[in-house]
């Protein structure tokens, strides 16, 4: 499921009610939901069970407002390479799920 489905399908948008559109944008995806080549903006890190891990994601550049791009995934779908803060980093899906993202502001 591409989290950009709202932003990249304007025609469909017109057929949906304003409430539906608002609901869609409010439904945040995570890094794990992105497909290759997609860009998104980081909303936050949701990893209450592992504060050290959450802190590490922050230190790696996954800060609120940062732009992230999904570059590629490994042959067996895990791990996944993202581009953030000017460099590329591979994460396992497990970690990628911690970071909530939204479509970049147009």
């Amino acid at each position: 499921m591409s989290i950009l489905s709202v932003a990249t399908a304007p025609r469909r948008r017109a057929l949906r009610s304003a409430a539906q559109v608002a609901a869609d944008v409010a439904t945040d995806g995570t890094l794990a939901d992105m497909s290759a080549g997609e860009s998104a903006r980081v909303l936050g890190i949701a990893a209450e069970h592992d504060p050290a891990g959450a802190r590490r994601m922050f230190d790696l550049g996954f800060v609120p407002g940062a732009e992230v791009r999904m570059v590629r995934k490994a042959p067996l779908a895990d791990p996944v390479v993202f581009r953030v803060a000017g460099y590329e980093i591979a994460l396992r899906r497990e970690q990628a799920r911690w970071v909530t993202v939204a479509a970049p502001a147009s």
Partner: peptide
């Protein structure tokens, strides 16, 4: 101990 999150920079 807790699991180390996996991450690896691709320079």
């Amino acid at each position: 101990g807790p699991l180390l999150p996996f991450y690896m920079e691709m320079p």
